[in-house]
Write a protein that binds this DNA or RNA. Structure first.
Lengths: 294, 294
DNA sequence: CGGGTATTGTTCATTATTGCACGGATACCT
DNA sequence: AGGTATCCGTGCAATAATGAACAATACCCG
């Protein structure tokens, strides 16, 4: 049963009882309606209507079709309403993905967004592999580092996240607080296991900290925080993370070069939807509040 | 939500995941599929699919459409099965209409037909007004008299129903059995109230029976039978009716000119259906059995 | 009875849709 | 790394669907 349009035409004829009426409702010429009916009947091998001078009346088969098509029409109308409404409102899933180390910052922000839009469900994905926007795996991605440049992705500046060099109470109790930048040579650092890391603070560390000062190396950025809190050494943590832990203290004023540029990335197909736009606006507001400088 | 064909296209794309696959299933070029999707999305204002190098994946709106369209596809497939099967099988309503006086003959015939085709429901309509085939009021009509000549109606000879001049026991007890055709002038007749009746036996009666012999006139043919049985006079009744009532006796040999030609009439749209064909065949067989002469 | 208005049905010109060919890109396999 | 296969996207020509006009018929109403 192909050609659903002909069914729709037949449905309208069954409703109206006349070809002319159906043609007007459908916005086509009545000759088109006649041809649709003829084609459909020929394909089915059964007459759907009895022709007479006052119009078309449905046979049993036509009445059956009327019932089914009526239900279909309702379904499609509701579907169109849902889809159009969905495009305009903020509801359904909103999938956000980012690097793991942004979780402490993003989680409360996304929670606030969810509370502001009751009908939306937040799915916040972090993971080793990059979730790909073009496969529909996420609506919004927060990426770090160089400006992403993928086709079909629309990229916006988010903000440059300040990174601070901190020490924990546990470390200070053991080794004392560094007196200043010049004193750092006498202290230990929690380093990155990835020697190729292009994070600006890691580059600075490779240039200014000797390998024997780095007695504790981790791969995941989340583990750096844990190591610093445990007192394994000085370490770089995002500003927001430091503020969350009272026992972390800034060792020296953060350098601008340490800042990590963040990007908001969305797929072009979803970028215009109000849901994504609302999310982007919310995120940028949160960034302004957290880091007015940028 | 017009253009159901585009929904069908989108449904197939959602199922296959690729434009090419959907195009093959639908039997159209993949460019057509792309254009359908584009048009549908433009109309809805929402992206149904995310395009990427491996194909199309449905967005939430696309997934919603998939669900609805899947149900629709099932419905239409079932509908097509029902309609096609209905054209081939003998089931559903079968509406037969005739003049009232044929009811005694037709009723047992139609009963047998119903018993032979358990899935069919017989609706036997008689009434003052003519039920019109072109409005779908009946599938098969049995008409009497001149050969009907309406466009869109296919007419077949049924048979010439013998009409007999009979008297009841009650009449004979009162007036005696007429001795022969020559003796009829001394008897009473149950006549027709309709002076313009073109039934051949009524014409014969106007020519051969004086008005004062007709002391009892009725309009409905059914009432003639009742009157004859009651002994109101001699009267013309169909052969089958006489056979049903043992107290009716033929007064004189039936003349050929009295016979009423009957016609089987169907609407051209329904004439080819097996249901109607089966009914026509059954009726003609019954006619042969009841009246082998014709 | 006769004109007016509804309907369906058919033919021809127009329009829109479709199919085809090609280009470009990505993924996969060797 | 390179070749191949598969996919999407777009311009252009062929095709099929559509729309307009006209004919024919039945019905309604005065």
């Amino acid at each position: 049963m192909d050609n659903w349009d002909e069914i729709r035409t037949a449905y309208q004829v069954a409703r109206c009882g006349t070809v002319s009426g159906a043609a007007e409702v459908l916005g086509v010429h009545h000759a088109t309606v006649i041809r649709h009916i003829d084609a459909l009947e020929a394909r089915l091998g059964v007459k759907l209507f009895q022709r007479h001078s006052r119009g078309y009346t449905a046979t049993e088969a036509g009445a059956d079709l009327l019932q089914v098509a009526k239900a279909t029409d309702d379904q499609f109308t509701q579907l169109a309403g849902r889809i159009k409404g969905q495009g305009e409102g903020v509801s359904g899933d909103l999938i956000v993905t980012s690097l793991e180390f942004l979780s402490p910052f993003l989680t409360p922000v996304l929670m606030a967004f969810q509370e502001a839009h009751a009908k939306v469900t937040i799915r916040f994905l972090t993971g080793e592999r990059l979730f790909r926007l073009e496969y529909g795996e996420a609506h919004v991605a927060i990426r770090a580092g160089e400006q992403p440049d993928q086709p079909d992705n629309v990229v916006q500046e988010f903000f440059a996240m300040p990174i601070r060099l901190v020490a924990s109470d546990a470390y200070i109790a053991k080794h004392g607080m560094p007196a200043g930048e010049a004193d750092l040579g006498a202290h230990y650092f929690v380093g990155s296991d990835d020697q190729d890391s292009r994070a600006p603070f890691n580059i600075w560390m490779r240039d200014n900290v000797t390998p024997d000062q780095q007695k504790f190396l981790t791969t995941a950025s989340r583990n750096v925080v844990d190591a610093v809190i445990a007192g394994a050494g000085l370490g770089f943590v995002p500003d927001v993370v430091m503020q969350l832990h009272p026992n972390l203290h800034e060792v020296m004023p953060a350098k601008d070069e340490w800042k990590v540029p963040l990007w908001l990335v969305t797929h072009v197909d979803l970028h215009r939807t109000t849901k994504v736009q609302a999310c982007l606006t919310h995120l940028k507001d949160a960034a302004k509040a957290a880091c007015p400088a940028t």
